[in-house]
Amino acid sequence: MKTIQLNRFGIENLQVVSTEKPAPGAHEVLVKVEAASFNFLDLMMINGYYNPDLAFPYTPGSDAAGIVESIGSAVTRWKKGDRVITHFIQTWIAGSKSIVDFQNRTGLEKPGVLREYICISEDALIATPANLSSAEASTLPIAGLTAWTGLIDYANLKPGQTILTQGTGGVSVFALQIAKAMGARVIATSGSADKLERLKALGAHEVINYRDTPDWHVEAKRLTNGRGVDAILDVGGTETLTKSVYAVKADGFVGLVGNLSGAVVPFNIYDTVPNNATLRGISVGSRESFEAFARAIELTTLKPVIDRVFPFDAVQEAYRYMESKTFFGKIIIAFP
């Protein structure tokens, strides 16, 4: 079978190689992968930023969807032919996650998905929503579930409330779509006039160009009559987090999602004390939340936004495209 492997750090070192097709253990499922989607976590792994002691050869990728090819002797949750999606934190089924769960992440401690067939625990899969293709479904495990968990489970978003999204990556676009489906108001930011138009077409009520308006937190307050937004999923880190805190209302919610501009934030606690803002890290979500998200997708007919689909052999080009940060939504690899 075809497998994408890395033998040393750097996108230029990604190669398509032939490896043996695996066989499932007693509690494992063999999945024929049909599509996978990219996350910035992939780039951090490939370039050596996340784990400089990574063991090679390494296969990247955390998000995939496909069809059950065969099952192990003790598997009860799946049968041949089922359409399934991988779950990122494989052992986090419900409730609060544990330290052990963080040793069971797809594409980090567990094998990556950029291979034609994967063996994975029967508990680390959910059923693909009936209204999605495998390409669409592959966008859900990290970006989609992070947005869902942040807004629904943690921020407790209600109809009529207001959220602010940052940029046009997977988490932010999903946040816009989920908020719209919930009947919430969306203020979206981007540094591109073209992307702002696309955000409006997707349903954003107001947009802010953060290049033209670097104090976008002030504009967000103005757009909410001085009150502030109810929730923000902060994907920027260093350059955005303090402004996110300023932009939320009293008792507002700021979800810590990404670090696109850096992970270290010079922070004054008095930025949060006056308005009692809640800052919470978001580590994707449990399988229970993922299954709830999948049901909501079927009921609302939500469709993930896919920017481009690359062929399997164009993996280097696909990751270079992600590195450029010019995309809108999700980037997909289609399998042979």
Rank of each mutant, 00 (worst) to 15 (best):
S289K: 04
N225H: 14
D212E: 15
S62A: 14
R115N: 12
N225K: 13
E116A: 07
Q103S: 12
F267Q: 09
N276F: 14
F174H: 06
A220S: 13
P60T: 04
T139S: 09
T146K: 04
V16F: 02
I187C: 09
E317D: 15
R198F: 06
A193P: 00
L302P: 00
D271R: 12
T139L: 08
V254W: 10
Q5S: 12
L114S: 01
L260H: 03
D42G: 02
W78R: 02
R77T: 01
A193F: 02
A250F: 14
F88P: 03
I232E: 07
H87E: 03
I331R: 00
D234S: 10
I85G: 05
P336G: 12
L299K: 13
F267A: 10
D123L: 11
V100R: 14
D101E: 10
Y321G: 05
V68A: 01
I93Q: 14
L125Q: 05
Q177V: 03
T162I: 10
T272E: 08
R287Y: 06
P141L: 08
A94R: 11
S172L: 05
K158G: 04
F9H: 14
Q161G: 08
Q316E: 12
I93T: 13
Q15A: 13
Q15E: 15
A292Y: 00
R198W: 14
D307L: 09
R308S: 11
V235I: 15
V75R: 00
E34S: 11
G66V: 09
A155S: 11
L132F: 12
S18E: 15
K21Q: 14
K249C: 07
R77W: 00
G255W: 07
S62F: 07
G191T: 10
T165S: 12
N275Q: 13
P266W: 06
I99A: 15
Q90K: 10
F102Y: 13
T238Q: 13
T301G: 03
S62H: 10
L176S: 04
E317N: 11
R295T: 12
R308I: 01
G107L: 06
M322D: 02
Q103H: 15
